[in-house]
C-alpha cells in the first residue's frame, strides 16, 4: 500500500504535454479503413434498389423513374451493407463523415443520373 502511487504518472504527465489534440489547428486524420459517408458513382448505377431494401435504417431511397438516388445522412449508421450488396459496385465509403448540418433537411443528399440519349437508343430500336 502506498500514498504516492500516482507520483510517477503525475511526473510523466507534466513533461509529456497534453494527450488531446489542439483541435482546430491540428485535425484528426482518419485511417484508410475507417467507415464514413457513402458516395455513389451515379453514372454506373442501374437503380436496382438493392441498397435501399437492405439498408437497416431505411436511409436510402432509390427512384427508378426519375433515375434518382437519395441518402439521408443523419439516418445512415455507416454499416457499409449497401456497399457490400451493390451489384455494380458503384457505391463507396469515404473514410470521413459528411459535414455537419443545422437543419435536418440539409442532410438529405440526392443524385440524379443525367439523361443519356445513347443508352436510351435501344428501346427505340425495338419499337
Amino acid at each position: 500500500m502506498s500514498f504516492l502511487s500516482m507520483g510517477k504518472n503525475v511526473a510523466r504527465n507534466l513533461f509529456e504535454g497534453p494527450a488531446t489534440r489542439r483541435y482546430p489547428k491540428e485535425k484528426r486524420e482518419y485511417g484508410p479503413g475507417s467507415r464514413g459517408m457513402i458516395g455513389i458513382d451515379i453514372e454506373a448505377c442501374i437503380f436496382c434498389g438493392l441498397c435501399s431494401r437492405r439498408c437497416p435504417t431505411g436511409a436510402l431511397t432509390v427512384r427508378k423513374d426519375p433515375r434518382e438516388w437519395e441518402i439521408d445522412r443523419l439516418r445512415c449508421i455507416f454499416c457499409g451493407y449497401c456497399v457490400e450488396v451493390c451489384p455494380k459496385k458503384c457505391l463507396a465509403m469515404a473514410n470521413h463523415y459528411s459535414p455537419g448540418v443545422t437543419v435536418r433537411e440539409d442532410a438529405v443528399h440526392m443524385e440524379r443520373q443525367a439523361p443519356r440519349p445513347a443508352k436510351e437508343a435501344p428501346p427505340e430500336a425495338k419499337e
Binding site: 485511417g31 479503413g33 455507416f78 454499416c79 465509403m93
Partner: peptide, 12 residues
C-alpha cells in the same frame, strides 16, 4: 479497433 474494423465502438 478503428484501423482494423473501420469503427471505434461499433465494429460491424
Amino acid at each position: 479497433i478503428e484501423a482494423t474494423t473501420g469503427g471505434r465502438v461499433i465494429f460491424g
